[in-house]
Amino acid sequence: MPFLKLMRKMSLTGRIGVGIICLNLGVCLLAPIIAPYNESAVVGDVWQSWSKRFPLGTDHLGRDMLTRLFYGARNTISIAFLITSLAFTLGILFGFLAAIIGGWVDQLLSRVVDILMAFPTLIFALIVLSILGTSIPVLIMVIALLSSTRVYRLSRAIAMDIGVMDFVEAARLRGEGLFWIMSQEILPNTVAPLLAEFGLRFCFVFLFISSLSFLGLGIQPPSADWGGMVRENAGAITFGIMAPLLPAAAIAFLTVGVNLVVDWLLHRSAGKVHEGL
């Protein structure tokens, strides 16, 4: 099993990170099976305390907190993953193109990215979302576009370093096309730093969705999501009730888990570079 082999080589913190991610993924996939109630069913009183019937109590409408957390994981994580993947596809594609072709293509793409990055991300997203409305496809497109600017910067920089290596020149001299050079010569050599960035970016996107949901512009009720849950239950804090802290803790938990794995990845790729020299 290559996965087990990899796990054995991992540091302890890396293993803990993988454990956390697996736990969250498991919850995502199995939410309808393991959740005790229906996602938006009102099953009890408002903000009931922890009991046998409601292991983590109920929320501001009397829905089961545990159920909401499970479904929230599903919505938030899958959308964050989709956004990050999209951002990487865009960012890597344009970043590589800019690095390999250079010249005016590079200038054009880089200046567009500069313009996008000049706006504070949250404000930019708020404006676009309030103009276009808050549907999930729009949410995904907007955050993916904004995140892809960061990915663009990184992949362009890495591709430029690799693009000047002799093996890329050899491929050019052979007459290889752009697609081959991008996918076969450069991409495989950028996997480690890009994967690390993926983990990091995933966390940012995840937090970004949560903050948009907290502001009421993210995933819309009655769908559960962690950021929205913090907002909905925010009032409970004045009564000393745990409810808003639970989804916040879930966000923190996953973020820490992903970062532990990313740290290990970065450490490993840095070690490899060192050995290579």
Partner: peptide
């Protein structure tokens, strides 16, 4: 292109790792 080939100075960087 085929008829004109090139071998480089540094074998370490002229092969895709």
């Amino acid at each position: 292109l085929r008829k004109l080939q090139m071998v480089y100075q540094m074998p370490d960087v002229s092969l895709n790792p």
